[in-house]
């Protein structure tokens, strides 16, 4: 039982933490009524996905991993490069995430100018009053 726990559960702890953070962000996106809170949840969700991919690329304590920058000295000391492909993908994803955040914030500001509030329920009520 203990062996199974260590091999199957503890060996993948990064993935469980990544899933936990992802669900925290997802809960904020669904349940919170404030639009900026929703965007904070979105950021947390994205970061959880990045954590998952970077964990997939990493190489653990044995053999020791090193950053993917060519250096013969590190290799002769017995280090192994970590996988650079997920890093490239995640760099692109971070760029897209900041672009998404900026456009969403611009939309939130426009909504505030239009409705005078950034709470989702009040916006829905006001739309109902206007008869949209």
């Amino acid at each position: 039982m203990l062996e199974w726990l260590i091999e199957e559960i503890f060996a993948k702890y990064n993935y469980w933490i990544s899933i936990t953070i992802m669900l925290i962000g997802f809960y904020a996106m669904i349940a919170k009524s404030n639009l900026i809170k929703k965007l904070i949840g979105l950021s947390i969700f994205q970061t959880a996905i990045f954590l998952f991919f970077i964990s997939l690329a990493d190489i653990g304590p044995i053999p020791r991993g090193t950053a993917p920058i060519v250096s013969e000295a590190m290799i002769h000391k017995g280090y192994v490069y970590v996988n650079p492909l997920p890093h490239v993908l995640i760099l692109t994803a971070i760029v897209v995430s900041v672009a998404t955040l900026a456009v969403a914030l611009a939309l939130v500001i426009r909504m505030y100018e239009e409705y005078g509030t950034i709470e989702e329920e009040e916006i829905i009520e006001k739309e109902r009053e206007l008869g949209v």
Partner: peptide, 16 residues
């Protein structure tokens, strides 16, 4: 789903 994912830090896993 995460059961199929290779172990964290495994230098011999398929993507690595």
């Amino acid at each position: 789903v995460a059961e199929d994912i290779p172990d964290f830090g495994d230098s011999n896993s398929a993507p690595n």
